[in-house]
C-alpha cells in the first residue's frame, strides 16, 4: 500500500517538476548551473536579481505568443 502511495507521490512530483520546467520555474537553477559550469569569477546574481533581470530584459525583447 505504502509502496503504491510512494509511486503515486513520485509520479506527481515528476509531473510537477515537468510542469515547472514547461513554465520556466527552474530558470534560476539552470542559470546557477550555467554560472558554475562556465567558471565565471564574479558571484552569480541572487534569485531576486535574476528574476528582476529576466523580466526587465523581456521589456525590451518581447516574445510572441501565438493565436
Amino acid at each position: 500500500m505504502s509502496a503504491g502511495m510512494a509511486l503515486v507521490a513520485n509520479g506527481f512530483r515528476g509531473f510537477a517538476r515537468y510542469l515547472g520546467g514547461v513554465m520556466g520555474a527552474d530558470a534560476y537553477a539552470k542559470y546557477l548551473e550555467h554560472h558554475r559550469a562556465a567558471g565565471h569569477q564574479e558571484p552569480p546574481l541572487t534569485e531576486r536579481e535574476f528574476w528582476r533581470d529576466r523580466t526587465d530584459r523581456q521589456d525590451t525583447n518581447p516574445q510572441g505568443r501565438c493565436c
Binding site: 515537468y18 520546467g21 539552470k30 542559470y31 529576466r54
Partner: peptide, 15 residues
C-alpha cells in the same frame, strides 16, 4: 544561462 539554455527535450516540447 538566460536566453540560450539547453533545455530537456520533453520540457521544451511542452514549452
Amino acid at each position: 544561462g538566460k536566453d540560450y539554455v539547453r533545455t530537456d527535450r520533453n520540457v521544451l516540447f511542452g514549452h
